[in-house]
């Protein structure tokens, strides 16, 4: 199971790397979201086999529950990733309204001759 998760993490990482290296910021956004998910899965996989590791706090009855710590970490990371993704989408949308493009090359090019960018 852990091997399968590890392979999945590898695939997700490869995909997100591919997406982040694209020129369009929309794809970079997707790549970043995928990267966050890959990182969450990696935390789950790296924390090892859940069986046998009990709750670190409660006395007794630990065999009934899995190790909660990685899950707490992942939940926090998901929430943070949600906030960052929302911020990034809003930033992307505003930039798109300003510049009418999300292409990194056009956005940062010094020699574009599109005059409509600073209107609106």
């Amino acid at each position: 199971m852990i091997l399968l998760t590890a392979i999945l993490v590898g695939v997700l990482f490869a995909q997100s790397t591919y997406l982040i290296l694209q020129r369009s910021f929309v794809r970079i956004l997707f790549g970043i979201i995928l990267l966050a998910n890959a990182a969450n899965l990696a935390v789950l996989a790296m924390s090892g086999d859940p069986s046998g590791k009990g709750v670190p706090i409660a006395d007794g009855r630990t065999e009934l529950s899995a190790d909660p710590l990685p899950q707490a970490l992942i939940l926090t990371a998901i929430v943070i990733g949600f906030g960052v993704a929302a911020y990034f989408i809003a930033l992307l949308y505003r930039t798109f309204l300003d510049w009418k493009t999300t292409d990194a090359g056009e956005l940062f090019a010094k020699s574009t001759t599109d005059d409509s960018n600073s209107e609106s």
């Binding site: 970043i32 990267l35 966050a36 990182a39 969450n40 935390v43 789950l44 970490l73 943070i80 960052v84």
Partner: peptide, 12 residues
Amino acid sequence: IFGSAFFLIGCG
């Protein structure tokens, strides 16, 4: 964001 993802992996 990129760095944070690696930070998370480091935590794991």
